[in-house]
């Protein structure tokens, strides 16, 4: 976080407080219907009950497990396929129309099919998440590999790099910054996969909780579920940022101040 961003956080907190305050005032005064918009205090109370009684944890655990598996699996597959297609123009040219079609397709519609194949357990959600994450990471790695400065590749070859060494010392580090920029989007997509999957059919998970709450028109519980998901996604995103800072120290503007 830059110094400027750090100095801004009291204002950011104030803005949040003001928004929640306005929400509270408008619903309390009856200008917004609490039936549709909920009440902040009620949302807080639901959250308190969930975490106080611990009833949320089995659901949150399942959703997080699905998300992490989807995130890891999708990223791994995306990186492998991206490297492979980025390095073999023939395979890339051959598969090009299929990749374009698969990318253009709204992939969330696959959820019912995955549920049919894999049942209502966690694996149908994981597979949906993997599909969503895969394409984001894949396209970025593919782009990253094709974007490597050819002079750097030629230089490494002149220095004696074998194909494997090129992959390890040139293509991989070059693709890594693209991987990380995609991971921020991918974190969100992994959650989408888990929650949408749960939404379409499950017996556990935060998505299931939200669905239940909607069924009984309990908008406060719906909002509480959204708050929980948002906070988890933010935490995961922060972890990705931390890792990114460590691994991409070489980039301009990454930790320069610490060096000099």
């Amino acid at each position: 976080m830059s110094a400027a961003a750090r100095r801004l956080w009291p204002y950011q907190l104030a803005l949040l407080t003001a928004l929640i305050g306005a929400w509270h005032a408008l619903t309390a005064a009856g200008l917004l219907s609490p039936f549709f918009f909920g009440r902040p205090l009620e949302v807080a109370r639901v959250l308190g009950t969930w975490f106080g009684s611990g009833s949320i944890f089995p659901h949150l655990g399942v959703t997080l497990l699905e998300t992490l598996l989807a995130f890891a699996g999708g990223t791994l597959l995306g990186v492998l396929c991206g490297l492979w297609l980025g390095l073999s123009p023939f395979a890339a040219a051959l598969l090009d129309p299929y990749i374009k079609a698969a990318n253009a397709m709204p992939r969330v519609v696959l959820a019912p099919i995955f549920a049919m194949w894999l049942g209502l357990g966690i694996w149908s959600k994981v597979l949906l998440g993997v599909t969503l994450v895969f394409f984001i990471v894949f396209f970025n790695v593919y782009q990253g590999v094709k974007d490597v400065n050819p002079v750097i590749v030629d230089n490494a070859r002149m220095l004696g790099a074998s194909r494997r060494q090129l992959l390890r010392y040139v293509y991989w580090p070059s693709a890594l910054s693209w991987v990380f920029s995609s991971l921020h989007t991918a974190v969100g997509m992994a959650f989408v996969g888990a929650v949408v999957g749960e939404y379409l059919g499950s017996a556990k998970g935060v998505g299931y909780l939200i669905l239940q709450a909607e069924g009984s028109f309990d908008v406060n519980a719906v909002l509480a579920g959204i708050v929980v998901l948002t906070i988890c996604a933010l935490l995961l995103d922060t972890a990705v940022t931390r890792l990114e800072r460590r691994l991409l120290r070489w980039r301009p503007g990454q930790g320069d101040a610490a060096h000099f």
């Binding site: 400065n149 002079v151 750097i152 030629d154 230089n155 490494a156 002149m158 010392y169 040139v170 580090p173 070059s174 890594l176 991409l248 070489w250 980039r251």
Partner: peptide, 12 residues
């Protein structure tokens, strides 16, 4: 070979 353009690996 010393290339005309910058050929160092920026990540190293």
């Amino acid at each position: 070979y010393l290339f005309q353009t910058d050929a160092l690996m920026p990540w190293a």
